[in-house]
Amino acid sequence: MSARLWPLIAAALLVLGVLLSLGTGAVWLDPALLAGSVVSPKPSLPWLILWELRLPRTLLALLVGATLGLSGAALQGLLRNPLAEPGLLGVSAGAALGAVVAIYFGLAASFALAAPLLGITGALAAAALTLTVGRGGTLTMILAGAAVSGLMAAGLSLALNLAPSPWAAYEITTWLLGSLTDRGWDQLLLALPFLLAGWVCLATTARALDALTLGEAQAESLGIDISRTRLLALAGTALSVGAATAVSGAIGFIGLLAPHLVRPFVGHQPSRVLLPSAIFGAILLLYADVATRLIPTTQELKLGVLTSLAGTPFFFWLVTRLRRTAP
């Protein structure tokens, strides 16, 4: 795969993935039926399945995957750390806690958008805390992120511990596993502005990330405002990953994996990693979501579980490669 070839491969994988995602599920819709449902008189059953279930789910997989890939690429560039990912700075945990609070107090049952709304709030609060405590340096920011993640995880444990009923605890746990099942247009439309705002913030860091290849001192001497770059990267992650997590639950490894997949093909330059990483993040999550529908299990296989299972071997590979190349 070369720099010229990757857009073609990405486009082919996207088209195939979208068709698979629209067609696969409890009811199999082949491409002819899909096309037929679009032109036939509505409402027909295939049309309802396509419009109300499969299409929002497919779009969400693409949006959430792209968000994770983009944010992972930006954070790895910002922190110059190949193990950085959106979960590192406490943002994912904050979003999860926010959404769980909504479930815990029964708000989610009475008002469908309570979980995503509180999830986004949680993500922003976590990011603000990380940035306030960890301002001043890359290492302090990673440490602050770890502390904030720990705090949010403690909050999640507390919610499980004090859950009013086993049923509530079960609902919280399954939500935390991450899934795109039964997400509809309203959740997608709620998340979309936050996703877009976050993407814009992340994209504006591109040139600063390039300069940071030379370290913070040289980047600053090249006219880069490092604090502003940190703020943009973290705010962008909070907005986009926060909104994504609030809708889908915690989904690991996509943000870690996608940048590594594309980096060798764009000459390792951080700004050139951003867009391909977003696209391959979208592709990875789309196929993972299709796989959860194809793998026969008695209980539904959760998306977050699958990405973690499939992503862990990659993590091991990354660590062993770092061990070999580290001085």
């Binding site: 110059r80 290849t213 030379l214 001192a217 000459g267 330059q269 951080p270």
Partner: peptide, 14 residues
Amino acid sequence: RAYLPQSPRAEWPL
């Protein structure tokens, strides 16, 4: 103005 810090290095294999 150009500035070179002590032992500058590239953090990615650019």
